[in-house]
Design a protein around this nucleic acid. Structure first.
Lengths: 199, 199
DNA sequence: GTCTATAAAAGGATAGAC
DNA sequence: GTCTATCCTTTTATAGAC
């Protein structure tokens, strides 16, 4: 039954992705070992490598899987800022994910890193998603028409990336509140521009 | 002559801090080894350990030394947003520093990490510095009086932290421009608030 | 698919010479 | 203050058996 075999493999993969987050939450991405992840899912370390050829591939897949589910749950069919905020809020309950994202994104920024390209594309994806959300807000009249959506999206993405690292150091940091503040700022400024632009 | 001995030790320390940045720029903080840093300054690895007891201590000192020199060169006697921008612009020429900051800050966010407390205090320091710069801008009438300086400072710090990781992945990202945009946004909004606050 | 065995390399630490 | 010489541990990755 290849059906069953595939299913089992897929289930095991899911389990590994989830356990990886637990281990990273506890030890951080640098100190997390494939051996510990393997043992926690009842495998040896080489056994784990059968599913993900390398540490980098495993971590990349963790992030990709989360992006996929976030897209389905929070952004589809139309991305909105509220969805983005919901993702951030949800991340608060998955510290391993935030830890992994922060550490791995920084690690992968070095030229030639196996996950470098993944992050470059991911940046483009998130920024595009948010720019779309802003354009939608503009169409609906929530946001002023003269605001540069791409520019505003870039600011929101940068702020939320920075906030997540800060939050890891100090979980009392209220990411949602700060990002909402930025959103209001953009909204006010967007109307200010469109009126002040006329003499 | 203890004077000469001390001086030599201090010079060597400086040299180590500088070379550490080179190695981190090339390999990243995770892949950089104390052995390579040691050899590049003409020491063995145990010889390096004489100066900095551990990898974490070395990296922490790199960042602390840079903060000290930034404070003297760009912030003293009075911090201003222009100084903050100048630091960001200057960082652009020291990719190893940005790489180290991004990777090490993320790594150290795990509870119990030797540099965790350093970063917690550093966050407080930077945010305070920027809040002071904003209050100064308010006193001088550049920034509206009703803006919450601490809140605005937090946004700038978060955005600049996020931008630096993004810039590592794609050096065409113009950090200075984006942060200037955020500053203008805050400025506009600060006036908007102070006028719209009155019926 | 999963294991055993093991390579290869790195991190960190120590003892003792000079 | 710095070296040589190790040592021990851990991590990732591979080879090949079952």
């Amino acid at each position: 039954m290849s059906r069953g075999a595939y299913a089992k493999g897929a289930v095991k993969r899911e389990e590994i992705l989830a356990v990886a987050l637990d281990v990273v939450a506890k030890s951080g991405c640098r100190k997390a070992t494939s051996r510990e992840i393997a043992e926690r899912v009842g495998l040896t370390q080489p056994g784990l490598m059968h599913y993900f050829g390398s540490r980098e591939e495993l971590y990349q897949e963790v992030l990709r899987a989360r992006d996929d589910s976030d897209l389905a749950e929070y952004y589809a069919p139309n991305p909105r800022f509220e969805g983005f905020l919901a993702v951030i809020r949800h991340n608060t309950e998955v510290p391993g994910l935030v830890q992994l994202y922060a550490e791995f994104a920084a690690e992968a920024s070095i030229a030639g890193h196996p996950a470098h390209e993944f992050f470059v594309q991911r940046y483009a994806w998130v920024r595009g998603l948010l720019a779309e959300a802003i354009r939608r807000a503009q169409e609906e009249g929530e946001m002023g028409p003269d605001l540069d959506a791409a520019e505003a999206a870039d600011l929101i993405v940068a702020a939320s990336d920075g906030l997540q690292v800060e939050w890891l150091h100090d979980p009392t940091v209220d990411m949602t509140r700060r990002l909402t503040r930025l959103w209001e700022l953009l909204r006010r400024s967007s109307w200010f521009e469109s009126t002040s632009g006329r003499p």
